[in-house]
Design a protein around this nucleic acid. Structure first.
Lengths: 365, 365
DNA sequence: CTTTCCAATGAATCGTATC
DNA sequence: TGATACGATTCATTGGAAA
């Protein structure tokens, strides 16, 4: 394959391009972005209304942008935007797409047909999915992500050590347990959700930590309310978003403006049981219970260390997992970092273990 | 659609058909099996020789072989066996396929293109997966199953209550945590595994419990060492397996012969309320469990109505069936009057549903 | 202020028998 | 074949109201 010239200088960095993603991507140079993350319309084909057993109506996805028509129309559209995304992607870059059974199989087959090389399919296991109200199928409790490099020979980025660190020193698996985007994180207008399918930041956090380096450029053709941009800014990555709907784009702007980036020295990736569900320390970071750069300390405040984005700690004389750093600072062979380290919450010292318990409640093995 | 004639009598029940599955399925009558379970091959490595999925020999054995050509061969083979499986499947039957990211997207897209209607994609989350040795990807810790009915209108079997029962009274989700097939269950010859991808019986157990009834016929075009047959026999279902490797077929025979079926009364699925005989409300009145003129009320006593001799209810503003009046009073589209309305019996509020079940028990006894 | 209870809600392809 | 009526059916989490 002929290596195309890279042309990063002409890129509209950290910008939201208002318009159809195919037309907007067409204005970007060849071979210029490091990662594509795409959450395209699922083309759900919903007929009537659905009610819960208590007779309340389910607020389904009835947005016009999700109605792509039959399989043929869906495939035409998909091939068009994937073609542009592939052209803009660097040869050593990779792409993530997310979808449900309605569209993910067609997406995956088309990726293969276009020469992308599938690296993993990843399952987002939702810890709190919507039930199946009529009892006619299995609870639809997951969505599928496909991670693919541009070619079989691409030297794609995979921060193996960082992911392993974030997973309590176990290899990160292809199934990720993360909750839906609800509560304070969910953007609302007059008490109603602004976007029907806003993704949780924890999901993008893990995607970007896994497959980008600080300073990389992430292209999101279906930007929506800007989850990709918010997490990219937080983690010191650049973003380019395409969004057709001005209301979504405006909300994304405001949201991203309010993001405080994590400290630069905290986001560098690390170089290279059980009755209750195991919760890795990195989970607390990606779920926002602890910020990268935040200080942790022992109960007597003799030692302290800083949290890094991949779930490792950095102290003056030691780096590594919460357990390794605690042991090193005390010059003992081992130490349980969960009970050793504390953070300050509302003027109180709280052990990491207590934060972990809040995550455990409601998460099954 | 023209309903094809069913022809179960000509079926080779509980048999292993030795030969290519496309040719063997071609000998089976239309519209004759209740379920298809298929674990198709996608790897090129068979018996030490490199083959394409359609069994054509591949000449060059380097990484530069024609990927697209390989996809085409795979798709041709897939369409051929799916076409036969679809023909043999009853209109109200359903199909399961299992695969990994190498083939599952092509399988799913083809199912959709052929008119199957996807009901769920299900994730088999392996509790003990093989680690990723090179650290270049996420640990591949799952496989994907697709469950689809023959058409969007199929009245497929789903034993909702049975699966809920098996899941601590929570509805079964689309992600299943099950271990690999290891230990005593794994068939071995001279200490080496006989089949490279033997599936665990627990997986088939859940599949058959979910989507078949006792006595149903299950067709497995890629029978291998007969996991489907073993579980089918155990659960009182019939099987038909196709297998072209005589060694696998022989091992499957021996394996299935040694299976002791579970007691017949133990394999009947938990009966769901949908399947019990319907009893009209008027029956309760004519049988004397409720007197004409008696007052019924909701559990909080916000609404009430009077029973009429013909089994209808009369409230201030509405008349009709127990369901219609309950719905009208609450201004909701529909309501189950059996659980909504109560009567007083020995100082207690008793739902009509409870009176009905006393009648049912008298019937069956 | 704490605890408890109630209401709301999330990418959803979510009936069937009878007349 | 289409209209009508019956009647089966929910989990985890959040947030606010109520006690």
């Amino acid at each position: 394959m002929t290596k195309r010239p890279e042309n990063t200088s002409a890129l509209p960095l950290d910008a939201i391009l208002l318009g159809d993603c195919i037309a907007e991507m067409a204005r970007l140079p060849n071979n210029s972005v490091d990662l594509v993350f795409a959450d395209p319309p699922y083309n759900l084909q919903l007929n009537g209304e659905l009610h819960r057993p208590d007779n309340s109506r389910v607020d389904g996805v009835d947005a016009e942008w999700d109605k792509l028509g039959d399989f043929e129309a869906h495939d035409r559209f998909t091939r068009a935007w994937l073609t542009e995304a592939r052209r803009v992607l660097k040869d050593d870059g990779s792409i993530w797409v997310i979808g449900s059974y309605h569209n993910i199989f067609r997406l995956g087959a088309m990726l293969q047909d276009m020469g992308f090389w599938i690296l993993n399919d990843v399952i987002w296991r939702k810890s709190n999915p919507m039930p199946n109200f009529r009892g006619r199928r299995f609870t639809n409790a997951h969505e599928t992500l496909i991670w693919a490099s541009k070619t079989p020979k691409s030297k794609y980025t995979f921060n193996y050590a960082a992911l392993k660190m974030a997973n309590d020193d176990l290899q990160m698996r292809s199934d990720w347990v993360l909750p839906l985007c609800t509560g304070r994180e969910r953007l609302k207008v007059d008490g109603r959700k602004l976007h029907p399918t806003q993704k949780p930041e924890s999901l993008l956090y893990r995607v970007l930590m896994a497959s980008t380096k600080p300073g990389d450029v992430v292209l999101d053709p279906f930007f929506g309310t800007g989850t990709t941009g918010a997490v990219a800014k937080y983690l010191g990555r650049h973003f380019i978003g395409c969004e057709r709907d001005p209301a979504y784009a405006e909300a994304a702007h405001a949201r991203i403006d309010s993001v405080e980036p994590a400290p630069a020295d905290a986001i560098t990736a690390t170089q290279s049981p059980r009755e209750v569900p195991r919760i890795p320390f990195g989970n607390l970071v990606e779920r926002g219970l602890i910020r990268p750069g935040e200080l942790v300390f022992d109960v007597r405040r003799r030692y302290s260390a800083r949290v890094r984005a991949d779930g490792s700690l950095a102290a003056d004389s030691a780096r590594g997992s919460i357990h390794q750093v605690a042991a090193a600072l005390q010059s003992v062979p081992s130490c349980n970092g969960w009970t050793f380290w504390h953070v300050e919450r509302q003027g109180q010292s709280v052990p990491l273990d207590a934060l972990r318990s809040t995550l455990r409640e409601g998460q099954s093995a």
